[in-house]
Each structure stands twice: as structure tokens, then as C-alpha cells.
Design a binder for these strands. Sequence first.
RNA 1: GCGGAUGUGGCGUAAUUGGUAGCCGCGCUAGACUUAGGAUCUAGUUCCUCACGGAGUGGGGGUUCGAGUCCCCCCAUCCGCACCA
Length: 951
Amino acid sequence: MDYNFNEIEPKWQRFWRDNKVYHVENSSKKPHYYVLDMFPYPSGAGLHVGHPLGYIASDIYARYKRLRGFNVLHPMGYDAYGLPAEQYAIQTGQHPAKTTEANIARYREQLDKIGFCFDWDREVRTCDPKYYKWTQWTFLQLFNHYYDEAQQKARPISELVKQFEEGDERAPEWNSMDERQRQELLMQYRLAYLADIPVNWCAELGTVLANDEVVNGLSVRGGYPVERKLMRQWSLRITSYAQRLVDGLEQVDWSDSLKEIQRNWIGRSEGAAVWFPLDVKSNDNVLPGAQAYMPQFDPQPVPSFEIFTTRPDTIFGVTFMVLCPEHELIDEITTPEQKAEVEAYVTWAKNRSERERQAEVKKVSGVFTGAYAINPLTEERIPIWVSEYVLAGYGTGAIMAVPAHDSRDFAFARHFNLPIRQVVSMEKDVTSDPAKWSESMDAKTGWSVNSGFVTGMKVKDAMKAVIDKIEEMGIGHRTVNYRLRDAIFSRQRYWGEPFPIYYKDGIPYPIPEECLPLELPQVSEYKPTATGEPPLGHAEMWAWDEKKRQIVSKSLIDNVNVFPLELSTMPGFAGSSGYYLRYMDPHNDDAYFSPSAVNYWQNVDLYVGGAEHGTGHLIYARFWNKFLFDIGMSVKDEPFQKLVNQGMIQGRSNFVYRSKADNGLFISKGLIKNMDDVTPIHVDINIVNNDILDIDKFRAWRPEYANARFELEDDKYICGWEIEKMSKSMFNVQNPDDLVERYGADTLRMYEMFLGPVEQAKPWDTNGIEGVFRFFKKFWRLYHDEQNNYAVVDEEPTKAELKILHQTIKKVTDDIERFSFNTSVSTFMICVNDLAQAKCRKRAILEPLAILVLPFAPHIAEELWHLMGNESSVCDAQWPEYDESHLVEDSFKYPVSFNGKMRFTVDLPNGCTQDEAVKAIKDLDEFKKWTGGKEPKKIIFVPKRIINIVC
RNA sequence: GCGGAUGUGGCGUAAUUGGUAGCCGCGCUAGACUUAGGAUCUAGUUCCUCACGGAGUGGGGGUUCGAGUCCCCCCAUCCGCACCA
């Protein structure tokens, strides 16, 4: 073989490693550039071809930037804590650290084979105590800070304490509080805080499950019952940053769809909070002694409740109110006559799982409390209902229902025969009878009608007018609501970061910073304890000696000097939220990262990864970074300047078709008359080539197919195919190692890019890889003669050859800049085809070309670079400059179209005017043919573009 | 239901500003070289038509000298969110 990738690739991988070619310093005269891949979890299954897609794209960009003279940071590491390793530990007793170590080794081996330019000296692992020391440290900072709403930034909790001591109105009794009261109050401000949060508790598994781990009220694993239960959990007050998380999206260079996903997730909605007074007269048996409510609406003396609405302008159309089943007011206001019915409903609704409530969206349910509220603007009595369509966790858990202009209110009103009153019309002053409507009018446009002082106003103006009015009346205010929830930060798991927290009398206290890291203890079992404690409950050495400042045996707990430590661990996103900052200074034992490192690198310039992190990781990491920014650690408010989402790689499954009539017979795809006569069976894609089944391998694949018989077409068995998720069970998983072995890493890299735009989801299909491999063989032959001897010569290149080169430089440069790697691969193919045609072996052409190819195919580039006599790595070469003078032509081949349809082309000199062009083509036979000899109506001449004749 | 994205040959795709639709590759067809081909090279390959020519970028309409590209309506597929007031 002439192009011997098997020899070339390991050789240069060794060279790069031995010469530390990819080592990066934290200082340089060069401009800096930070390229980052999303943190991989090292799963036991290893890499499949979908994983490296993004790594290859970012590797190309990183190498390109380096060639353009940048000092490029391109690190890699492992998000090493996670459930699969723990699950495996529970099953086998093997320590998750061991499993993780083995998986990382396998990942590393696979990554190395593909020839990435990672600086492995900077590798981090979230499960390494030297790393998670800083995860714990950040947690303590969160614990010790609160969010100052006025300044819109985090500030030390000690400053808040000082304000309280000086008689802040938020805590007038501070100075007379005891320690417990003070800590409980502070807990309401800390950015990392403990709170009772409803979770999916599975008693059988002794653990809390995520929503997607619960189906129909049962755990996915094991099928055990799951209940909603309040549990004391650590949470991060990410909601304080909601506004900044929305605003920050304006500054970053991400796709619109990803920004939209984040905006939806944060779910900002503007509206008004309004206090509705209860009609206490009608409820005086429930609320004895209540005072008159009119005309003064001060919410304090008059019993009232708060609602949130995004449509304050429709307040004149309120015909009922709805409380969520969890609302605390229900017990107080329900009339004796309604009591039984309401209690039954509330019990029923509370016991319904999230699933059920979601599945039956269309069903309307609810119950009247018997109580009334007063519309503060119209002074009407409005019935108060309870329904599960109002959610406890959003707004205030209570709404004013405007059935004419909200589809859910509308459905509810129709179901319970409640009045519907139109207060907005599409056309000014044109109303219709809502009784005849089939649906509500939800649009936020139009004019207010039947609405007192706002009648005749546009919706937008009416909103403002109503809010102004209620503010003036002192019964409400303009406000903003977010869908975003605080992030639950406790996990009842073993394989995660321990919290540096111990408990004195049930009050959490931080371990001193100097004592970090608090290392994960050994446990006898990875399961929860018999009493339902998290796995750390099994740890013997798991108590804190406050005096000695060290971990001691649990048996020494006396709650005087020795206290119990927190038993939960942190979730996966703890370690992966700030890892990009740690890469800047990964071995620093005195700080998360040094100011000089972060001042040099600033933030990530390019972040590449899957869109599946759109709501999880990317929100948490932005929050984490903003907090670190507030406390003066990170220097940019946003962590990831530009972000490219790689598309998912789907699997392409192959099928054989077994006859239903004859169990041993397999019918080739094209011969099947009726699909009902056959059973499609997944077949391993590794024994199929271009959809043709390797019959011998198929017989050997499974014992039951040893004697399989086939109905062939053209002596071949043609398989069917389908695009599905890449998964083991569908036998469509493509492992990069197999391809590297067969075609080499350069071909794999180039082929993954050739598949299509990086951002687009696409099926994996090896049918085209041969073409890319052929390209490399052709490319190799440019530098070698027929006997495979190096044959580059030092002759002057021709004009034509220079044109080919500079066209390629221009196109490839542009393509890389806009992440259009698939088109650069085509460009290389065209270039090599053209140069082969021209039999060009000239150094002046081939040397720059090797540099151009380097980002895509580093091994062959390095080999050719050295063959051409260079000593240092091609990675340190300079990107060729595009020279336009080589592309200038004397003439342009004009397409000539008639009525927009292209008919022929004509070569005209540069600078040709319309008159000259017309003169030149008028006498051509082709011209006469298409005009039919008649005078054209109009001629459009666009220089260097087109000539269009209208006739 | 709401939001986002995508629809181009048998397949993956290209066409960067409204200006020659189908580049490049796979596959396929024919040929050359060869003991052989899963090697290499040459030619062809959107569809209909012997051809002249016609049609053609999910469908329908529009703007324009000219539309894959811009505007309106519809359809399909994928992704995200979803009783969010």
C-alpha cells in the first residue's frame, strides 16, 4: 500500500506526545483563544462515532486558530461522577472509582487514536479530591453569600447580618433572636440553602428519583411505587439570577433556537400581582369578626389573597377565581356546605401524579368553595373555585379567571356554566356574544371593551393603565414571574462530592475552608441504609470533630465537639459547572484558579457540544459563572461566548426479512411482494456492506441462522434500512476504533465532517467513507511518483496551479471561519482532483496545501511536512495567505438567459459594458433562435453576473 | 397547544449578497488496464423524451427582468417546552 496510515498515524501521535506539541502556557505574546468541548461522562460503552463529531469540529478550529497565530487552549477531562458507575457498584460491589478509572482509560485510548490536539497536562476529573476541593469551596461561597436585589449581585452574608444588627426592616427582631432563629432567617437568604422540597421518593429504592425516572407513579427501575414527599434538601437560589440569565443571552453568540430554549426554560413573564379581598360578609361564619372591606383595600386588615396575572387589562372580565389544590386559604374560606366536596377534591387532586395530571390536560375538574372575592375595580362578588389546572409552584397559586380571553379559563367556565364576559375585541367597539364562541380570544392585541375606565384603549395601554390604577390604590403592583425553579442540589447517592457541612443541633455549619477537601469516605455498601439514609450513612468515619478540625469516627458523635456530617452528596452538575475555569489553572492547590490565569484566558471563546445540554448544564454553568463573577473570581459575566451545537448522529439500521411462511428463508428486499409476509429482523451493520449482506458472516453470526436459506436478487441479498437511535439493541452502533483500524484516523475525521453541516442531525452511514479514503490516496500520490518515491520538486508553479491553490485557500479559510467543514472537504477534493489533472508536484503548491489540510487530517499533514524537509511540527506552521491576484481573470463567462431561463454562455472581457455585451451576442445564431428574430423588450446586464433578455 | 428547526437526484449533500440548480462524494451504467478486484483510470448518471424540447428544489399563491434563496397560506418530519395564569 502506498498511503500507509497504519505506520504514519502512531508515529506522529508519539512525536506529538514526546515533544509536548500540544502543551499550552498561560502566557504568550500571541492573542489567546479558548476552544472547549462539552465535558464527557466516561461511560462503560466507550465512544461511538457520534461523540467525536463535535471533538473533531473543535479540533479543526483549535488547530486552525493556532496556525493563525493564536495561543490556543484546548483541554479535555472527565465528568467522572455519575449514576452508571454507582449502579454498577451496587450490582457488583466494585468501587465506582475503579470502574470510572477503567472507563477513563478506555476513553483516553480511543481519543488518542483520533489525533486530537488536547493539552493532556490540563486534564481534570470531577471525582479527584484536588478538583472537587474547589467544587466544595464554591458551595461554601454560595452558602456564605446572599443575593442583593438592589445591587443585583451576590454579597457576603456577613454584610446582611450587619444590616440586620443595625435594625434592617427585614429583620426588626434580629438582636433579640437566638442562634437557631437567626440561622433559620439567614437560610432564607443564602444562595445555597436547606429547604423542604417535594421530591419523588421511592421507599423501596431508598432514594429520590428524577421525573423521567418515574412512569405512572412507579420507578422505571424495578417498578416500585413513588410518592411525592417533602424532604429537606440543599438548593441553589438560581432564581435570584433569573433576570441576569435572560439578559445575558443578548451578549452571547449562540443559535437562536438554543437561546429560545433557555428563555422558555427561564420563562419570564411580565404582569401584575393583585390583592383580591375576600367577601367576608358572605363568609362571616368562616371568618368571624372580619371588618368591612369597602372602600378601603389595604390588604393587611382585610382578609385577601394575592394573584398573578399577565393580563391585568382583562380585570373587568373576571367572572371567577381559582386556587390551586395546595392553596393554604382553602381551609379557611370554604363554607360548611361545601366542605365535604372541597376536601374530597383536594385529596383526590393531591394524590394524582404529575403524569396523570399531564396526560389528562383536556379534562376539566374543580370544585366551588362557597366563598367569594371582590373584584377591586368593579366591586363585584366573584365565586372562588379550586382546580388542579392552577399550579402551586407558579405565580401565587391563585388566579383571576377571565374565561373570554384565556383558553383554560374558557374550558372551565363552559364546563361549570360560569359566565363569560368579553372585555377585549379585535376590532374597535365590535363585540359579539361569548355564549356563541367556540373558543376564547387569547390574543394580546385589540381594544378593551366593557372595561370601565380603560374601555376604548389598546390592550397594551390598558395593561399599563390598570397597573397604574392598582398601584395607586395600593392593592397590587407591576411584577415579573419566572418559571425557573431553584436547583435542588442534594442527591441521596454515594458517587458524588460530599457536602462540607456538619450539623449542630440540626443547624448546618460549614467545614472551615482550610480543611477542604472533605474526602468521600469508604462505605461498606453503596445502597441506602436500612433506615432510609443515603449511602454515606454506611460510612464509619463520617463525623466532624470541631476542635481537632478533622473527620473522625461516627461513634464519637457527642454533639458537643463531634457532630454528624451531611449524608447527601452533590449532583452531577456541581462538578461540571465550573470546570472550564479550572482548566485555565488545573493544578493550583491554593485557589480554584489564579487571577493571572483567568485574566489571561478570560472565558471560553468557542464551546462545542450537544443541544441536550440546552436547559441543564448551560443554565447551571452560566449561573455558577455569574456567581463567581460577583465574588470577583471569574472576569466575564458570561462563560461561553460562542456556542456551536453539534447535531445528533443517528444510527442506520439494517434489516433482513424472514419469510413468515418459511422460518429458514430470508427474502432479499427487492423481491418482497407484501411486507406482511415477512418479519424484519435487525442485523448487525458490521456484516452488511452497502446494504449487501455478507451471507457467510450472517450464517456465522447466530447459531439459529447457520442453515439460513436465501432468495437472492442478482446473486445478492439486499438488506432494508431505517434511521433509528444509535443503540446496541438495534445492532447499528458504529465504533470509531473499527474505522480507524480500517481507514485511519485522518479518514475518519474527514469523513465525519464530510457527512454534512456540524449542527445538523444526520444518520451515520459508512457508505461514503470509501470516497474520502480514496481522496487521501490521491492526495498522497500528489507528493509521490508511481513507485511511491517522494517526488516533490522545486519548480516554479504555473498560473493555473497558483489559481487552484489560492481558490482553495480562500474557500477553506472562509469555511472554517463559519464552521462549514463539510464544504471544505469538498473543496479539498476538487483541489486534489485539479492538481492531479495538472500533474503538479511543485513544492510552492504542495507545501501550503499540507498546512491547509492539517486541521482536518493532522497525521498525513505532519508526514508530508516532514518529507518536504521541515524539522519542526506542522502545527507551528503559518496558515497560507490568500492572494487575490492569482484569481483575477481577463474575461467572464456570462450566462445568457431568456425570460430567466439560462440558454447559453458567452465569454466576454472584463469591464465589458451592457452595450458591448449586447453587440457581442446579438449576431449569434443562439440569440436569434431564442428571440425568434424579434427585438428584445428589455435587456438586464449585471456585470460579472448575468445577462437576461426579456422577450 | 406554544416555540424552534428542517424539507433539493436512488443516498449524504452544494449553491456565502435574489443571478448558470444539483458542486463534491456514495451508488449505479459503460469502457480501459489486469490472473484477479472490495485496486486504479476514462466517460456517463435529476426526471420525461429517439430527438427538438419540456418539467423540476414538500404543496399552493405572490413580489421580481430573474426565486432553492424574499413575502403570505398550507402540508410533512424532527427537536424543545407544555394546564406557566
